[in-house]
Amino acid sequence: MKKLLTVMIVLAMTLSLVGCGKSSNTSSKTLSIGVFEPASGDNGAGGKQETLGMQYANSVTPTVAINGETYNVVLKIVDNQSATDKAPTAAQQLVSDNVSVVLGSYGSGVSMAAAPIFEQAKIPAIGASCTNPAVTQNRPYYFRVCFIDPFQGSVMASFVKDQFNAKKAYVLNMLGEDYGSGLATYFANAFKKQGGEVKSEAFPEGTSDFSAYIQNAISYGADVIFAPSATTYASLIISQAASAGCKIPITAGDTWESSVILDAQKGTNLKVYVSTFFDENDKSGVAATFVSGFKAWLNADSQHKTDNGGNDIVAAVSALGYDAYMTAIEAIKIANSTTGEDIKNAMPKVSFDGVTGHISFPNGGDAAKSDAFIKQADNGVFKFVKRQSGAS
């Protein structure tokens, strides 16, 4: 009996040691990627859609190999609240979370506010849809996968000339808001360069009554309104223009490619056009695969669908969010490292076919882009109009 007890004890100890050894050999390593996006504030709706693209990309590619070892990629998500005064605190939280690279943000102003913090921590950031040129200017740690506002402003100026033979444009944006004021300026300059006339106005933050601005556009005899602004204001501009019987086409940039704009335009006769980065009806292999997979992923989770605006329309910012994540993965693989400085130094070597086009960085932090998609909001859906290049 004692002999049997001894054998059982030895066997139990052996199994215990084997178990410990197995646990040690299969221990997983983790790499953290920060998601710096608005989930609240003026740009909360767009920020959620951009984040969805990153989350879906993480579900498609949840691991990365570094030095022959597999790392689980974990997203650390913070809400920058669409506010430049809140952005630094959110950015610092990601630094404290020891992320290797950051994705975002929807909204150029918050990206610029956070840039010094990421740079000081030597953590590279990859923007998805932050289009203001200043995001990457003199910021060696900031990159982005979208086109930029001088190009987008030129694209929309060319579009309204071609589409409406517009000679007079009324430009409206929020006072002091980096994205809107910058894009408004680039559009106005490009439109005037093509021989057009411009009347520009800016509304203060918190404005809810746009009736006077709409009447100013009508009185001016504008052929087109260009109103780059956050979706919360865009919804009011569209609904109040419709109530005023305004027949002037209203145009804006990428921010307006949102379910919020579709809801505001639905049931009206207003013509609303936006420039954007992607069309879900693109039939090319990479894009088509992304669209079908993303829609299935959205519809499988009620919270994801809610964050997308309650539908499974594929927003361009979701496609850009996906590309931003995949860009980070490519840079990590090239760097073969989890260190921010190494990943930043690997970024110029990134070159792959993303869902929004080829992604590479031949001229610093901005991805090379040559044209934009123009879409029309029409009774609950965005209809593809054309691909448009900028003015020559």
Results as ranks from 00 to 15, higher is better:
residue 326 M to V: 06
residue 190 A to F: 01
residue 215 Q to D: 12
residue 377 A to E: 02
residue 121 A to P: 08
residue 333 K to A: 10
residue 86 K to M: 14
residue 147 F to M: 08
residue 2 K to W: 06
residue 112 M to H: 11
residue 108 S to F: 02
residue 239 S to K: 14
residue 5 L to M: 11
residue 320 L to Y: 11
residue 244 A to T: 09
residue 257 E to C: 13
residue 290 F to Y: 05
residue 176 G to N: 11
residue 286 V to S: 03
residue 225 I to V: 15
residue 153 G to R: 02
residue 148 I to L: 08
residue 204 P to K: 01
residue 340 G to I: 03
residue 46 G to E: 00
residue 101 V to D: 01
residue 193 K to N: 13
residue 163 Q to K: 15
residue 53 G to I: 08
residue 36 F to T: 00
residue 159 F to A: 14
residue 68 G to P: 06
residue 209 D to V: 06
residue 184 A to V: 10
residue 202 A to Y: 13
residue 172 L to Q: 08
residue 65 A to D: 10
residue 144 R to V: 10
residue 60 V to K: 08
residue 94 L to R: 00
residue 57 A to Y: 02
residue 345 N to P: 05
residue 219 S to L: 12
residue 303 Q to T: 12
residue 256 W to F: 09
residue 101 V to T: 05
residue 57 A to M: 04
residue 376 Q to I: 11
residue 28 S to Y: 06
residue 172 L to S: 07
residue 335 A to E: 00
residue 205 E to W: 03
residue 57 A to S: 05
residue 193 K to I: 04
residue 150 P to W: 00
residue 61 T to S: 13
residue 240 Q to G: 05
residue 310 G to L: 01
residue 33 I to L: 10
residue 221 G to L: 05
residue 179 Y to R: 04
residue 294 F to Q: 02
residue 198 V to E: 09
residue 278 F to R: 08
residue 216 N to Q: 15
residue 60 V to G: 07
residue 142 Y to L: 14
residue 57 A to F: 04
residue 96 S to D: 12
residue 295 K to I: 08
residue 150 P to C: 01
